[in-house]
Amino acid sequence: MGLEEKLPNGILLTTVEKLVNWSRKTSMWPATFGLACCAIEMMTTGGSRYDIARFGMERFSATPRQADLMIVAGRVSNKMAPVLRQIYDQMPEPRWVLSMGVCASSGGMFNNYAIVQGVDHVVPVDIYLPGCPPRPEMLLDAILKLHAKVMDEPLGPARAALKAERGERTELIPSSVRYAPRGAGK
């Protein structure tokens, strides 16, 4: 937009920021980057039983140019790493990366010469999801936690600097607690 960069620190577009973040989080299209067994769980999450479309992820984008969120599902081999980076570079800003499963997050049990020990060596990761493979509910939980992070994202460098100065961190509450119906539970 550019406007928020020219404004002084005192004038903050907090409501606009909220609106922008809300629209970003409620329509976040994922790019498929299924590499191994985690991709099976990711496909299940897109199916009717878990129905990822409930969270505004209407369709898995086959092209990175129309995607906002890259779900790296599976082990990344050294040969795949440049491809992964290229796909990430082709995605338009703002973009997010979800590292799904232990192999993508840290190499998991494959501590050997062929596997990249964590996809964060190649691309910046916004949220790590452990599990081998994580069940669809775990993926939904990670996506909802990422939504909470997106809602707290600052708009423009002035706000970002202010937030970094305060050292704020988004509280990541388990989704079943966060979205528990009111009046239920203990």
């Binding site: 997050s105 916004d126 949220i127 790590y128 999801l129 452990p130 939980d141 936690k145 990541l172």
Partner: peptide, 12 residues
């Protein structure tokens, strides 16, 4: 318990 996702490697 399975809701373990986090944004920091150290916290995991």
């Amino acid at each position: 318990e399975f809701e373990l996702a986090d944004d920091d490697r150290r916290r995991l």
